[in-house]
């Protein structure tokens, strides 16, 4: 438990992000707008991870209709917390 970090919430227009240690890059995305935006959000998450230089982590995202700016902010905040926990 101590190894994971969580950001965001399950409020509408927000998303809950959890990061856990992993050997590889894994994205587990559940969204209430699956039909229209699953691929888009998946790409947003992997692009943000790449931009932040994250190579291996397990990302769990439970999305409640969050817009891009929110998903990105929640993920960046999670990565910073994760780094603080593991490197800091």
């Amino acid at each position: 438990m101590k190894e994971t970090v969580t950001t965001g919430s399950l409020e509408s227009s927000d998303c809950l992000i959890r990061l856990e240690p992993s050997e590889q890059l894994e994205i587990d995305l559940e969204t209430d707008v699956h039909e229209a935006f699953y691929e888009h959000i998946h790409t947003l998450i992997s692009d943000t991870l790449e931009e932040m230089g994250v190579q291996s982590v397990y990302v769990r995202c439970k999305d409640q209709g969050a817009l891009d700016f929110t998903i990105r902010a929640r993920l960046i905040a999670a990565i910073e917390r994760y780094r603080e926990l593991h490197d800091g």
Binding site: G8, R72, A73, I76, A77
Partner: peptide
């Protein structure tokens, strides 16, 4: 920290 990232984004 979350709010800072959210407002920035």
């Amino acid at each position: 920290d979350e709010a800072r990232q959210l407002v920035r984004s």
